[in-house]
């Protein structure tokens, strides 16, 4: 094992880990805003990727138009989630659990819909972030150019989210709504508006992630469930469900654990090891290990 191998694996782990973190951000955002966990969180990534594929590759709309239209639809989908899933559940006395069950179903529902509409075969994503086989050579290390896009967007999104939630009035209103809806309305916060915005932002973040990740994940059903969904959720949990930066670090550590357990132990136990580590961490620190937003009780 030489140093370049190690670095190469760190880069691989960090990139895939960042993708987990990115997906986790959607979970964090909704939790921060309305204290609900959307188990169909990952569906937004798949839907955005397929929408972009449809607009860009099939309808030749151009990158910017395809991107904006896709994300706009995903944001509208977020709004629909609120009005067609959250509100009916609330109106009829349902709570967090009902929302979890409904969104779990929704996740499978979207997988079935996409399967029927597009078939199950993965499609290549157009090389909008550079050809899949274009690599940047730094010394003896070679990095696919799309990785730089991923790093860049993750960085920007974390920064934007952090500033939004911690520094802006609207972010504080989101958090107040999450912590006590009735009190939030009593201090003059339009809870309906913040809830809608929260849903739209949450699905949009994951939607952007979906388009960004499609070069690695392809335009495939893998973007709508499976490992990335579970690990994105795990990353969010490591950030205590509320810390964006912690979520990204959570994702990165999962990505690195996966790579290093393959490298130093065995690829056959990769998932077992990463999930055991995750469970241990959750039992040991249920509020998340990378959570600087809430301290103590």
């Amino acid at each position: 094992m030489v140093l370049s191998d190690l670095l190469q694996n760190i880069i691989g782990g960090v990139t895939v880990g960042a993708t987990y973190g990115l997906i986790g951000l959607g979970v964090v955002f909704l939790w921060q805003s309305i204290e609900r966990i959307n188990f169909a969180n990952i569906s937004s990534a798949m839907l955005a990727a397929y929408l972009f594929y449809t607009f860009y590759t099939q309808l030749h709309l151009g990158f910017l138009v395809a991107f904006v239209v896709s994300i706009a639809i995903i944001a509208a989908y977020g709004l629909a989630l609120r009005h067609l899933v959250l509100e009916p559940i609330n109106r009829h006395g349902g709570d967090k659990l009902e929302f979890v069950v409904a969104t779990l179903m929704l996740c499978t529902f979207w997988l079935s819909v996409v399967k029927v509409l597009y078939g199950g075969i993965a499609k290549p994503f157009p090389p909008v972030f550079g050809e899949a086989t274009s690599f940047v050579q730094i010394g003896s290390i070679s990095i696919p150019s799309v990785y730089f896009w991923i790093f860049f967007v993750v960085l920007v999104l974390v920064l934007v989210l952090y500033v939004l939630l911690q520094r802006t009035m609207i972010g504080k209103m989101f958090r107040a709504t999450a912590q006590n809806k009735e009190m939030a309305s009593l201090v003059g916060i339009n809870v309906g508006m913040t809830t809608s915005l929260a849903f739209m932002l949450s699905t949009s973040i994951v939607g952007i992630a979906g388009i960004l990740l499609a070069p690695i994940y392809f335009v495939s059903l893998d973007l709508g469930g499976g490992p990335i969904g579970v690990k994105g959720f795990a990353a969010a949990v490591m950030g205590g469900l509320i810390d964006p930066l912690g979520t990204i670090l959570g994702g990165l550590s999962i990505g690195l654990i996966e790579n290093f357990s393959t490298l130093f132990i065995s690829s056959a136990y990769k998932d077992v090891i990463s999930f055991v580590v995750l469970v241990v961490v959750l039992v040991w620190k249920p509020r998340g290990i990378f959570n600087w937003t809430t301290k103590g009780d």
């Binding site: 504080k172 209103m173 107040a176 009190m183 939030a184």
Partner: peptide
């Protein structure tokens, strides 16, 4: 009914929307 996971200052800030 304070917002427990927000700072004292943030609690006051969110009350100043009007």
């Amino acid at each position: 009914q304070v917002f427990p996971a927000m700072s004292v200052n943030e609690n006051l800030e969110v009350a100043t929307t009007r």
